[in-house]
Simulated assay, not measured.
Amino acid sequence: MRDSPLSATPYEVFGVPPTASTDELRRAYRRVLRETHPDTGGSAAEFHTAQWAWERIGTPEARAAYDRGATRSEPAHEAWAAPSARKPRDSRPLARSHGHPGGWRRERYLSLIREWAGRGVALDDPYDSAFVRSAPRDIRHVLADALAEEATARLLSELGIAFTIWHDVATDAAGGGPAQKLDHIVLGPSGLFAMLSEDWGAPVTLRKGEIIGEGIGAGERPLHALSLRARSIARAARVRFTALVIVVPDDQTEESLTVVGRARGVPTLLVQRSRLQDLARTGLVNVPLMGGNELFDVRTRLSAAIRFV
């Protein structure tokens, strides 16, 4: 996710300082291309990231424009600002939505960034990109996950009125608490889905039925955590989920949709964000669609059981 608070700047992609000469930058670009090219055993995601970075600073004109923009922080600020500061979207029939996507993590980020900045320090703009990038990674990760939740919510809202969506749902997993929430629960004719929206700032892979990667901390088990949270809701509402889904930015996994395995008989999926609407609309192969009476019953049970963080 190249506009993520966790993403590297073009200079960081090439491993050079912003003061590097044109020749130094060109040599670094060629080196990174050789190291990341898929034909020589490199990563396709990293190769495309290098190309993206070169488009931003590869010519004097592009580099000057990027440096001016980076100084003003306008592009990143527009993407990271709170939703109320953005331009309204066009009006279309939307899914029924409940809760505040990304709301808890936004509040958590603001609390952490103010504490990190220090007592008595005037914080004019907590979303200024230069300021955000100077913060510790764990604080930037909180903001990145809030943005990921909001991006997923925007896509889900476009599914239409046949769908009902709950965001920031509290669970009793691992003793409860806001950090144990489900980011999204999606109900529609294709089934009932429990979702987490994640941005780890780096590509992820699979090992022994779990998601691993450079941005995932030691001991973290994202799919296991999702399973525990979904099980809490399933018990409380007396429903069964069709699938458990972790949604990531497209550049963090090579496959658009991967069936990782099963958790107590429920399929677990790793899905690129651009594939999410298709999954929600079509569902899983060999899983029958929900009829009207079943949809109404499941929606009623969930509405009675769900609490928000």
Rank of each mutant, 00 (worst) to 15 (best):
T49W: 03
G102L: 05
E158G: 15
A50V: 02
P60G: 06
R119A: 11
A144T: 14
A135P: 11
G58S: 05
A45W: 05
A76G: 15
R105G: 00
A62P: 13
H48E: 10
L33C: 12
T71P: 00
T71A: 14
E46W: 07
E74W: 12
L33G: 02
T40I: 02
A76V: 00
R119V: 02
D145I: 07
P83C: 03
P101M: 01
W54Y: 11
I113P: 04
S43K: 01
A117F: 03
W54I: 00
E78F: 07
P60F: 02
R154D: 14
D124I: 00
R133S: 14
A151V: 00
A151H: 14
G120F: 01
R72A: 15
S134Y: 06
D138C: 03
H100V: 04
T152Q: 13
L143S: 14
E61C: 04
D124F: 04
T71Q: 14
L123Y: 07
A153Y: 11
I139L: 07
A70I: 00
S43A: 01
S91C: 02
H100Y: 10
A144L: 12
P101R: 01
L123N: 07
D138M: 04
E149M: 12
D145C: 15
P93I: 00
D90A: 08
S157W: 03
A85M: 08
H77A: 11
E158N: 15
R68S: 15
A148C: 07
E150R: 13
Y127M: 11
S84V: 06
A82L: 08
A153C: 10
A82I: 01
